[in-house]
Design a protein around this nucleic acid. Structure first.
Lengths: 191, 191
DNA sequence: GGAAAAATAGAACGATCGTTCTATTTTGTC
DNA sequence: GACAAAATAGAACGATCGTTCTATTTTTCC
């Protein structure tokens, strides 16, 4: 819609993630986005709205990346591509943990932000379930397996956060592969 | 050593965890600890030193709790008690994620704090390895299994953080139990 | 019991930061 | 080319917060 708005949102997303919420103020975003302070306040009510905008941007781009990673895949690899998408993201932007959880930690009393965090995690879990179904698992099995896949994803993000340890992602992927192999989908009895 | 110092550290730990680093300033700690501002600055050089003090306190109390949970246990349960300790902690203090990771996120450029975070995670991983060895696994097996247990622990903490979802901890515990059962320790061939 | 040390209350400072405002310049459109 | 809308630079404000300082009171210890 607005080119300026997009620039601001992308810059805010990048800065918030790379340098943290505490370290990047409005001025910092304005400077990096090469935009005037007034322009930012024309598009966003205030800092809170800017953070929400950055989270929405991250939500869209991250899930888009996960769709790319799954393109053309079927069976268990379609589920495991969730880890490939995570790895690609960690390599591209450096594993600094989950932007949503960090936003919630940095703005503890902001209801709007907390809502986005919950939404993000709910959608992430729902995506795990959907992928399992697409890969051939029954609804009941998908409902049981999805939280386990989700837990491995969360563990990978958290473990990768502390030392840029990308190994944690492949570790989690291997564990997920074993998990899926142990109870194969009726639709894909052979891996 | 100093009673006042202990009170300050305990209060800071509790407030930082319950209300977040951004929301609890020096004044807030002083008020809750029922201590004068000058007393705090007599014991700590500044905010950064206070945060480090709180992290050290958390480190000590958390690992002590893990020791308690493992007392008297042998074999796989000795490893799984890591999850019991985590659950007890989550129920007592409410799962708000890992204090160390939150501290690092809130003070991105503080070298001292980043060091404590790395130390904490390294010790946690080392504890996983030690427990596996105590439970009868060989050194090579322990080195391979420890990161997997650690990943499940991190995943449980992160997943529990978003909705007070204590189920994530028991979920992770079940996954760890299966993991250990799949390749039993020579010293404890029967579970 | 009296001296030294610690603790207290509270004011004051300086810096940071989110936000608003104004005056000027640029951009887009008929 | 003119006019309206958007963008710009930059000053200014108010609030928060970490930190320092002073004067007074309490505690500790010989």
């Amino acid at each position: 819609m607005s080119k300026k708005r997009d620039t601001i949102v992308e810059t805010a997303d990048r800065l918030f993630y790379r340098e943290g919420f505490a370290a990047t103020g409005i001025d910092r975003v304005v400077e990096a986005a090469e935009v005037a302070l007034g322009t930012l306040y024309k598009h966003f009510q205030g800092r809170s709205a800017l953070v929400v905008g950055a989270l929405d941007h991250r939500e869209a781009t991250y899930f888009a990346r996960l769709e790319e990673a799954a393109a053309g895949l079927e069976g268990p690899p379609r589920v495991l591509s969730l880890f490939d998408g995570l790895l690609a993201w960690a390599e591209a932007e450096g594993g600094n943990g989950c932007l949503f959880l960090r936003a919630a930690a940095a703005h503890p009393l902001d209801a709007e932000i907390r809502t986005r965090v919950r939404q993000h995690k709910a959608r992430y879990l729902a995506l795990c379930r959907r992928r399992l179904r697409e890969a051939g698992w029954e609804a009941t099995a998908a409902r049981r397996l999805a939280p386990q896949i989700f837990l491995l994803l969360e563990g990978a993000v958290a473990a990768a956060a502390q030392l840029g340890d990308k190994m944690a992602v492949s570790q989690a992927r291997r564990m997920a592969a074993e998990l899926l192999q142990r109870e194969p989908a009726p639709g894909n009895p052979r891996q």
